[in-house]
C-alpha cells in the first residue's frame, strides 16, 4: 500500500512538471482571459476564422472570445485534465498488480502500456475533436480546419507529455521495463 501511495505521488509529480500549464489555461479560461490577453490574440491569429467573424459584423475574435473560453475551452480542458490524471494515476496503481514473477517478464507488459497509451492518445484526440466540432458549442463554429488540427496537436502535446512523465515516474519499480525509458531511472528512485 505504501508503494502504491508512493507511486501515486511520483505520478502526480511527473504530471505536474508540465501539467501545471494545462491547469493554468483551464483556470484562465473560466476566468475569461479578456480581449487584450495573449491567448485571445493567439487564438484570433491561428485558430479562428477572422473573415467569418468580421463578416458577421464583429471587429475581431476578441469581441466574442468570452463565450469561447468560458464554455468550450474550459469544458474541453477540464475534461482532458480529468482523463489525463485518471489514466496516469490508474496506470501507476495498476502497475503494482502486474504479474511479474520472472526476470524479463516486465517487458511483456510494455504491450499493455502501449495499448493504454494509444487509448489515451485516442481519447485526447477524440475529446478535442468533439469539442471543436460539436454543435453543442456555438463558439466552435469560428474555428478553421487548420485551427482545429492545431488545437488537436496542442492538446496532444499538453496532455500526452505530462501523462508520459507521470507514468514514467509513477510506474511500480518492478514494472518499469514496461514503460519506455523508465528502466533508465536511478535504481534508488
Amino acid at each position: 500500500m505504501k508503494n502504491i501511495i508512493q507511486s501515486i505521488i511520483y505520478g502526480l509529480v511527473g504530471l505536474s512538471i508540465f501539467g501545471w500549464f494545462s491547469v493554468f489555461i483551464t483556470v484562465l479560461s473560466i476566468s475569461d482571459p479578456g480581449p487584450d490577453s495573449y491567448i485571445v490574440g493567439f487564438f484570433s491569429d491561428n485558430i479562428m476564422s477572422s473573415e467569418r467573424i468580421e463578416n458577421l459584423g464583429f471587429d475581431n475574435f476578441a469581441e466574442i472570445s468570452s463565450s469561447f473560453f468560458t464554455t468550450l475551452f474550459f469544458h474541453m480542458n477540464l475534461t482532458l485534465i480529468i482523463i489525463t490524471a485518471s489514466t496516469t494515476i490508474g496506470w501507476c496503481i495498476v502497475s503494482h498488480f502486474l504479474n511479474i514473477d520472472a526476470p524479463g517478464k516486465a517487458k511483456i507488459y510494455a504491450i499493455h502500456w502501449l495499448i493504454v497509451s494509444a487509448i489515451f492518445i485516442g481519447l485526447v484526440f477524440g475529446i478535442t475533436w468533439y469539442f471543436t466540432s460539436s454543435t453543442t458549442y456555438p463558439a466552435a463554429e469560428g474555428i478553421t480546419t487548420s485551427g482545429q488540427w492545431l488545437l488537436i496537436f496542442m492538446s496532444l502535446l499538453i496532455y500526452v507529455v505530462p501523462y508520459y512523465l507521470g507514468v514514467l515516474l509513477g510506474t511500480a519499480r518492478f514494472a518499469r521495463s514496461s514503460v519506455l525509458l523508465a528502466n533508465k531511472l536511478p535504481g534508488g528512485f
Partner: peptide
C-alpha cells in the same frame, strides 16, 4: 443583417454584418 451574441432583449447588442 444584424447579429447579436445576446439573444435576450435586455442585453441585445446588434452588430451590422458585412454581408
Amino acid at each position: 443583417l444584424w447579429v447579436s451574441q445576446e439573444t435576450k432583449c435586455k442585453k441585445i447588442n446588434w452588430k451590422k454584418s458585412k454581408f
